[in-house]
Nucleic acid binder design. Structure first.
Length: 790
DNA sequence: GCCTTGAAGTTACCG
DNA sequence: ACCGGTAACTTCAAGGCG
């Protein structure tokens, strides 16, 4: 029989000494199915040393233990060069690492390749099967003898085939969940503190709260497990669930002896690659992984992200300080509020899922990693999995991951801006500049010609400044991969024009083209990453070198046409908007440079200081862009950011520095009168390393120490919110207090906020207009007095 | 011992 | 566990002065 299914999850298990790949999915009719393939065997490649007698080596490898099923010579390519290698097939996946080690010991073996690719990924790659995509498979039904939570179990008679044309997303059962823990001693510890509440919300709109009995959460856990199995979700979403909820629940369940069997085979969640938790047959997605990519949100709490995405406004939800949750639990009159709180969280999480999952599906589809892994994998690994898919298609061997020393190289050019206000400025930029350079110049590890190698001048492209050479023919790996990604993206964008923008299909296509763009744009960074399998410094170095040459030429062309250049960064130039000259400019660029350039935006008015990478501009529709300035940085107080943003508005829209000065003075007055909410004084900074590794006493590190003392558990990557208080004086760092421990305005060092936050943020813009610090701080006498006595 | 200065450390941004 | 270029802050130690 034939079966059509959408691939949700994949795993494997060895049954009666036969590895079986299990593909969990949905049919168009909404049946949950698992398709089993028992015909696939794990394998890896062996590269023999030059001049080796292949036949002898085959015999030798065949005698090793664990004994391989098969050893055969195959023709592959390695960095574009044909290479005869041995393909060693094993009985079960566990034999691969063992045999690999034995093989590596052999005298005539140069290298062992592709021995570190997980078995089920090997299967997906070799059969070009993609997560979150539809496939057709010829199979036979089996009896569901293990009582798996599916409507049908099937044995594949041949591997599934991707159906490229079917792009709809089946109706998935999504369940969001969130847990709250008892925390009288700071960060809750599963060995000590019970889970007091679990809230769930599913696609049917069903909302549940599981409530502990006093400090006893055994029944709560059991009911939660029972509920998951009863509802039987396809996708389980949480916020920070891979770092908090799952490990907490697992340890708690272990301690209480509660069976956490929630997978479709009846197994508990298990930690797996990239630190995510895998639930067999379902996709466990941590939405925090995707929230991390939202640059506009600086402190990525669930509340902040939900507000930004228009899911739930902060005013419409209950706010409880995380550290006080236990108080709401202990006080019966406050429990209802805590329940409302956990419901707000689960509703926000579900809302986030509606915004984020459609992109996650397409990212999984493009990258080829299972849905539950693709978010947890870093950008580098996402690119790499796409490359590994391509390598298979081109019969290329996948290079091993090797440790290399960091090796720096020059990057892009940033122009010195023309400070001041400019009217009517067009921003021209090269679209996908680096990918297009790599394609055009055929830059790739496999086309690279090392310095010693003889080659005709006409056969290679030579990178400016650095002199790296790349063969013009044949197409390099990166050229093939990137052209495909960009072409596919263009095709999708064309197709979108014929689709109703409100339709689900449009959304699918749009998310797909975004995923393609993300991967294409990350490929240059990937090739210069020392951890990359396809790393080659010369590839990255040549790409930026050509980028510099191109932007320089572009500047010259613009100048020669009489266009005034105001600024430029990497792949863009800002020029005075003169439509006639710009048309001419675009024509010349396409003639002489032959890379796509387009007007990105036109500013009605744009303002630059002397600094690079920091400016603000007014768009024709009245919106304002702020780039690089304090107002868009996460490590300035909300107050300083707000002041700067308001000044920018006044300057760009009303062109009145005087009004801006009055405004700043008003704010400073309010600040000194204690009328600014404490929350607006919080400064957030990330802990980027362990405490011992810090060489200087930075404010956020001192504040973090104080948090730990108060019982909080902190990790690398946590954002520390602190307020500068009057404290003992001396160093700033000693005056930094964790904001959750500050409740009293009288402790705030108001003058710090005046002098080191509001004034600098304001002057960043206003000093260009001749405004001085003294004009903002009117009570000069007081300041000088305190200065005198200090 | 105090003050100035510049290097170093640190973070977050831009493209 | 994608890159280099950049601004801006604070800390810290060296150097100058007396």
């Amino acid at each position: 029989m034939k079966l059509t299914f959408w691939l949700l999850d994949v795993n494997y298990e060895v049954v009666r000494e036969v590895p079986e790949v299990r593909m969990w999915g949905l049919t168009p009719e909404g049946k949950r199915v698992v398709i089993i393939d028992r015909s696939f065997k794990p394998y890896f490649y062996v590269v023999p040393k030059e001049g080796t007698d292949i036949g002898k080596l085959i015999v030798e490898v065949g005698k090793l233990v664990p004994k391989p099923l098969r050893v055969e010579a195959v023709e592959k390519k390695y960095f574009g060069e044909p290479l005869k290698v041995l393909r060693v097939t094993c009985k079960i996946p566990a034999h691969v690492p063992k045999l690999r080690e034995e093989v590596a010991k052999l005298k005539y073996v140069k290298d062992v390749l592709e021995a570190d690719i997980r078995f089920y990924m090997r299967y997906l790659i070799d059969n070009q099967i993609y997560p979150c995509a539809w496939h057709e498979v010829t199979c036979e039904p089996l009896t569901n003898r293990n009582k798996w939570k599916v409507d049908g179990v099937f044995l594949a008679s041949s591997p599934p085939k991707l159906i490229e044309s079917k792009n709809d997303i089946p109706e998935l059962k999504v369940m969001a969940f969130d847990i709250e823990c008892y925390n009288p001693k700071g960060t809750p510890k599963p060995a000590r503190d019970p889970v007091i509440l679990i809230a769930t919300l599913n696609s049917e709109g069903e909302e549940k709260v599981f409530i502990a009995e006093g400090r006893n959460d055994r029944k709560l856990l059991r009911n939660f497990v029972e509920y998951i199995n009863a509802y039987d979700p396809d996708v389980i979403v949480g916020y920070n669930s891979n770092s908090f909820d799952w490990p907490y629940l697992i340890e708690r369940a272990k301690k209480l002896g509660v069976d956490l069997s929630i997978s479709r085979t009846g197994s508990p969640p298990a930690q797996s690659v990239y630190g995510h938790y895998s639930i067999v047959g379902r996709a466990n997605v941590d939405l925090y992984d995707f929230a991390e990519d939202i640059a506009e949100v600086k402190v990525k709490t669930l509340e902040n992200v939900a507000e930004y995405l228009g899911v739930k406004r902060k005013e419409e939800r209950v706010t409880i300080r995380g550290s006080e949750i236990y108080k709401y639990w202990d006080d019966p009159s406050k429990r209802e509020e805590l329940i409302r709180y956990v419901l707000d969280d689960v509703e926000s999480t579900f809302g986030l899922a509606e915004k984020i999952l459609p992109f996650a599906y397409q990212l999984a589809r493009v990258v080829g990693l299972p849905l539950d892994q693709v978010g947890a994998a870093s950008v580098g690994f996402r690119v790499e999995w796409r490359l590994m898919r391509e390598a298979y298609i081109y019969n290329e061997l996948v290079p091993n991951r090797v440790e290399r020393p960091y090796s720096p190289y020059r990057g892009a050019i940033v122009l010195e801006p023309e400070p001041g206000i400019h009217e009517n400025v067009a921003v021209m930029d090269f679209s996908s500049m680096y990918p297009n350079i790599m394609i055009k110049m055929n830059i790739s590890p496999d086309t690279y010609v090392p310095p010693g190698e003889e080659v005709e001048d006409g056969e290679v492209y030579v990178a400016p400044e650095v002199g790296h050479k790349f063969r013009k023919k044949p197409d390099g790996f990166y050229r093939k991969v990137l052209s495909k990604l960009l072409k596919l993206r263009q095709e999708i964008r064309m197709a979108m024009k014929n689709v109703d923008p409100r339709s689900p299909e449009y959304r699918v296509l749009n998310e797909r083209q975004k995923a393609l763009k993300v991967i294409a744009n990350a490929t240059y960074g990937y090739c210069g990453w020392v951890g990359a399998r396809w790393y080659k410094r010369e590839v990255a170095e040549a790409t930026t070198a050509w980028g510099r040459k191109i932007i320089k030429e572009t500047i010259n062309i613009a100048r020669s046409l009489g266009l005034k250049i105001i600024y430029g960064d990497t792949d863009s130039i800002f020029v005075k908007h003169e439509p006639e000259k710009i048309r001419e400019f675009c024509k010349t660029i396409s003639d002489k440079i032959d890379l796509p350039i387009k007007p990105d935006k036109i500013y009605v008015r744009v303002f630059f200081t002397e600094a690079k990478k920091r400016y603000c501009g007014l768009l024709p529709d009245g919106r304002i862009d702020v780039v690089g300035l304090e107002a868009v940085r996460g490590d300035w107080s909300e107050l300083a950011k707000e002041v700067q943003e308001e000044i920018i508005k006044i300057i760009l829209k009303e062109r009145s520095p005087e009004k801006a000065v009055d405004y700043v003075r008003k704010v400073i007055k309010e600040l000194r009168e204690g009328k600014i909410p404490l929350e607006k004084l919080v400064i957030w900074k990330t802990l980027t390393k362990d405490f011992e590794e810090y060489e200087v006493k930075a404010a956020h590190v001192i504040a973090a120490r104080k948090l730990i003392k108060a019982g909080y558990q902190l990790e690398i990557g946590d954002k520390i919110g602190f307020i500068i208080t009057k404290g003992p004086g001396g160093k700033l760092a000693d005056k930094a207090e964790p904001y959750i421990l500050v409740n009293d305005y009288s402790k705030v060092d108001v003058e710090y906020y005046v002098e080191k936050q509001v004034v600098p943020a304001a002057l960043r813009i206003l000093s260009y207009f001749g405004v001085r610090e003294g004009q903002l701080i009117s009570e000069g006498k007081q300041t000088s007095l305190t200065d005198f006595f200090r």
